[in-house]
Design a protein around this nucleic acid. Structure first.
Length: 330
DNA sequence: AATCAGGAAATGA
DNA sequence: TCATTTCCTGATT
């Protein structure tokens, strides 16, 4: 981060960036054995999926109450967010500006400090965007560069975007388009396909394109992924398009409590017992991953039950609703 | 009303 | 062929 050329991500003026962080330093650890201890809702994120992320203007329409500190870049000559609002794990290395640093200074100094501050925020935003795109790529099993997408990838991305912004189904309006087609479309083209959300999708795509362009300019240094990227390092399959198994997918989510403990979490990791907290949400994620828009918990749970006779997943000794157990815990 | 169990057939890679 | 997905009936929470 912050190497020359990386400061300006190349986001165009029509892609107002928002950053948001679901994390706070008040995060608590809930005990594995804790029976049905609900994770505090406010700590993990987005309306329903904690994909810390890039938000578009329509964000206003989304569940703001759960993200009390959205920073609007397009109108932010204001001080950096309060340190408490800065995600601790990701920004320690980014020197968040403390409010005290901008006090007791002359106007010029203040201007400089403000500029520095803005720069830092910008750097932070870029970092977050990169990360978020990365996370989405892994979840969807698609390449980061839209130009590389097949029609299926485009549909996945659209489904994901619908899910993220709680849009009605718009993906049907973009069928039979691959990534190149999508990228060659103008904002007007997008509007033609979806008068209501075309501009938004266009802006979101623009962010992805910018991110891909930036990745090319500043190839990722292999330092940060190891320590910083915690559990994604053991993600099962990356872009080589192998089908992922449901049990693997569930493990993936469970390995990312940071992002998904609101919808699925361990009750007892050692024994492999987990609970689906938000069945609809998990089903939707699975549907997105498998490109099955009609997926629901009824069907997902049937798939889980297929694992009973295969000895992959079972019901725990004391059967409880939405609680399952991996036969072979990690 | 949601979840659970499992049969049966369809589907897609 | 395999791993679901889809649909279903009936039971349980």
């Amino acid at each position: 981060m912050g190497s020359p050329g990386c400061e300006h991500a190349g986001f165009t003026s029509h892609s107002p960036l928002y950053i948001s962080h679901p994390h706070t330093d008040t995060r608590t650890t809930w005990l594995d054995e804790g029976e049905d201890v609900k994770p505090p809702r406010s700590l993990l994120g987005l309306p329903e999926l904690s994909w810390p992320g890039v938000y578009l203007p329509c964000y206003d329409r989304l569940a703001m109450e759960e993200n009390p500190w959205v920073l609007r870049m397009t109108e932010a000559p204001t001080p950096a967010p309060a340190p408490a609002a800065v995600p601790p794990s990701r920004t320690q290395e980014m020197n968040p500006v403390k409010p005290s640093q901008v006090q007791d200074t002359s106007p010029e100094m203040e201007g400089q400090a403000e500029e520095r501050c803005l720069e830092q925020v910008q750097t932070m935003v870029v970092g977050e965007v990169l990360k978020d795109v990365d996370t989405a790529c892994k979840l969807l099993n698609i390449a980061p560069d839209p130009l590389d997408w097949s029609c299926v990838h485009v549909q996945k991305w659209l489904l994901w975007t619908e899910h993220l912004y709680r849009l009605p189904q718009v993906s049907t309006m973009f069928q039979e388009l691959n990534g190149k087609d999508l990228c060659s479309m103008t904002e007007a083209d997008f509007r033609l396909r979806s008068s209501q959300f075309g501009d938004m999708l266009y802006a979101h795509l623009d962010i992805w394109r910018s991110t891909a362009a930036m990745k090319e300019r500043c190839p990722p240094e292999d330092n940060k992924s190891a320590a910083d990227d915690d559990s994604w390092s053991e993600v099962i399959n990356n872009y080589p398009n192998q089908p992922i198994h449901l049990w693997q997918f569930l493990r993936e989510l469970l390995l990312k409590p940071h992002n998904y403990s609101r919808c699925i979490r361990w009750l007892n990791k050692e024994k492999g017992i987990f609970k689906i907290e938000d069945s609809a949400h998990v089903a939707r994620l699975w549907g997105i991953r498998k490109n099955r828009p009609a997926m629901n918990y009824d069907k997902l749970s049937r798939s889980i039950r297929q694992y009973y006779k295969k000895g992959i997943i079972r019901k725990p000794d004391v059967s409880r609703r939405l609680v399952y157990q991996f036969v072979n815990p990690v």
